[in-house]
Simulated scan of single mutants.
Amino acid sequence: MRWNAQLITHRKEKRIAVYFEKKPELIARIKQLEGSRWSQTLGVWHLPDTFENRIRFKIHTSSPNVPSDEGIAQIDKFKQWMRSRRYSESTITTYSEALKSFLVFYPEKPISEITNEDVIRYNNEYVLEKKFSTSFQNQIVNGIKLFFATVRDTKIEIDKIHRPKREKVLPNVLSKEEVKLILNAHTNIKHKTMLSLIYSCGLRCGELLALRPMHIDSKRNIVLLKNAKGKKDRIAPLSPKILEMLREYYKVCQPTTYLFEGQIKGQPYDARSLQLVLKQALQKTGITKPATLHWLRHSFATHLLESGTDLRYIQELLGHNSSKTTEIYTHVSTKSLQQIRSPFDDL
């Protein structure tokens, strides 16, 4: 990270001050975070003091908001358990901080005496009180469940801890015309190739940035995705147009370790910088939708479905475990809807 953060009180409000080198790309990133503001008086950018932001900027809550000695020991044990199972560092941080906040909520209670009712009370009096998002609440509950599933001598009944009901949010999709405008917005070959590869293969941002030159199999026309989400390998088809673009890009940029590298050779391109590349493309095309890189993946799946591709193949291409995850794209496909005649037209 190229920034430091600390807790401050600004205008009688608890905030997190973020200090970093005043570069345009870093300012653009901080602006994207909800609730970010610039203080002319302090000469610093600052954000709401939330649990999510504390995790994001690695701010550890100081005394007296600390767990008991038993709690601290159990958090360390939990971290070791997750590392031995090769959980990602971001997941380890999220789950251990979630557990920490839970154990701080019950500082005097022995862990062996904690019950399901305590989890419910924590959810109602802490998580809901702080107005965390449903997805973030799910992460917290996942962390607590995982901890108690790996610790003995507890009264917690793991299967009876319920996650919050997920909001049924439809994926955001761009039209083919909008995608074409976005992909053609940049003259920079690297920027254009990265965005095009995400859409043409339905990649997640992390999957794109983890690619190495050896993962492009030009003879079989496939892209090999190593250790994708869920630590699963999968393959994606490589279109002739993309292969041609990749060859041109390779001649110009000559990457060494990763297929797409940043300013430092051998280091992967920065994820936030890639989001900024998309934002610039949106500005150039005049598209006002708040599109993210994941919108390109959603658009890939929806456009495949509309062109008649079987849902099972789309599931494989996206790397979904369950067909139910892929079925959500049937709700945003307009192919069937366009064939429905509105009764209004007959009036």
Rank of each mutant, 00 (worst) to 15 (best):
S96F: 04
L99T: 03
I161V: 12
Y199C: 09
V277E: 01
H10F: 00
R312I: 04
T330L: 07
N184W: 03
M245A: 14
Q137I: 08
K192S: 11
Y258L: 02
I287R: 01
T134M: 08
S68F: 05
I92T: 13
D345Y: 06
F57G: 00
Q338S: 03
L304M: 02
R29S: 14
V252T: 11
P64Y: 04
S175R: 09
K12L: 15
L146W: 10
R83Q: 11
K229F: 14
D310C: 14
K176G: 09
E207W: 05
R341Y: 15
V277K: 04
T61Y: 08
I328H: 04
I340K: 13
A301M: 06
A281H: 08
Y87K: 02
Q80Y: 12
S307R: 11
M1V: 11
A236H: 10
S135F: 03
K145A: 04
N4W: 12
S299V: 00
E178P: 05
K100L: 02
Q315P: 13
N65P: 06
A210D: 15
I55N: 00
S175G: 09
I182M: 04
I111N: 03
Y313H: 09
N188H: 03
K289N: 07
T150R: 11
Y87R: 01
I111H: 01
P164C: 03
L282T: 12
S101D: 15
T334I: 10
S336P: 00
L99F: 01
D217H: 07
G43R: 08
I75D: 05
E89H: 12
H294N: 05
R15F: 00
I158F: 02
K284V: 09
Y258N: 05
K109P: 00
S307V: 11
S84K: 14
Y126D: 09
H162Q: 14
H215R: 08
V169R: 15
E177P: 08
A98L: 04
G266F: 00
S96L: 00
P64R: 06
I198M: 02
